[in-house]
Computed example of a mutant assay.
Amino acid sequence: MKKYLVRYKPFLLFLGKFLLTYLLLTFVYESYLNQFDAKKFEVDGVTQLVAEQTKNGMLFFNFEAKVTPNAKEPAINLFYNQRHMARIIEGCNGLSVIILFISFVIAFSGKKRETILFIIGGSLLIHVLNVFRIALLSILLYYFPTREHILHGVFFPLFIYGAVFLLWIIWVNKFSKYATKNFKS
């Protein structure tokens, strides 16, 4: 047994750091969400921020947009050209994706400063891409309403998770301790 622990130590350390970070950040996030009463249709602040930024981004590019609270569930309604196009719920705010991103980076951590900067920069990039994703999805659904399944269910998850995957590849190959060892050899 000891032979396997020694042999697979790097993988076990990665797995342990990943799971510990993921569970800790998820617990903090869930504690944050528990402050809001879903029965009263309260929407958390991050979801509200994402909805406002989506609207403002669309307005910046001269797309008519408006957001209003949803009267039937904890969500924000997004309108494009006076037509209801999206319901922005907690799952749309991107925080769960950012938690996954951060957990992986910490599990493959590099130098402390680089790790922190990459986490901040990557999280901001994911956030901006997520806002862009919601705006673009709303506009495309306006023109192609019959394509909702492929747009919302396939293309846009692929878009956001693909960006996270590329960030992970950059991290592992350029900044992690693993990359440092390979480039110095």
Rank of each mutant, 00 (worst) to 15 (best):
M1K: 12
K2G: 05
L5K: 04
L5T: 05
V6K: 15
Y8V: 11
P10Y: 13
F11Q: 02
L12A: 14
F14I: 10
L15Q: 03
F18Q: 02
L20C: 07
L20G: 06
Y22I: 06
L23S: 07
T26K: 06
F27Y: 14
V28K: 01
Y29M: 02
Y29D: 02
E30V: 08
S31Q: 09
N34F: 13
Q35H: 11
F36P: 07
D37K: 04
D37M: 06
A38G: 12
A38V: 14
K39Q: 15
K40D: 13
E42Y: 12
D44G: 07
G45W: 12
V46G: 04
T47C: 03
T47S: 09
T47D: 01
Q48L: 14
V50L: 09
V50Q: 06
Q53N: 10
Q53V: 12
T54M: 11
G57P: 05
G57V: 08
G57W: 14
N62A: 11
V67H: 06
T68G: 01
T68N: 04
T68L: 12
P69D: 11
K72V: 15
K72P: 10
K72T: 15
A75F: 10
N77A: 10
Y80A: 15
M85S: 07
M85W: 03
A86S: 13
A86E: 10
I88V: 07
I89F: 03
C92H: 01
V97K: 04
I98Y: 02
I98F: 04
F101Y: 06
F101D: 04
F101C: 05
S103Q: 06
F104N: 03
V105I: 13
I106W: 04
A107D: 03
A107S: 03
S109E: 14
G110N: 00
G110C: 00
R113W: 10
F118M: 02
I119S: 09
I120G: 04
S123R: 04
L124P: 07
L125C: 08
V131R: 00
V131T: 01
R133L: 10
I134N: 06
L136E: 07
L137C: 01
L137P: 00
I139K: 11
Y142S: 13
Y143N: 06
F144K: 00
P145C: 05
R147D: 12
R147W: 14
E148K: 11
H149V: 11
L151D: 10
F155L: 15
F155W: 15
F155A: 15
F155K: 05
F156K: 08
P157M: 05
P157N: 02
L158S: 15
L158E: 05
L158W: 12
L158D: 11
F159Q: 00
F159E: 00
I160V: 13
I160R: 05
A163S: 11
A163M: 10
V164G: 07
L167K: 00
I169V: 13
I170C: 00
V172G: 01
K174Q: 13
K174V: 03
K174N: 12
K174P: 03
F175A: 07
K177T: 08
K177Q: 12
K177G: 14
T180F: 03
S185D: 13
S185N: 14
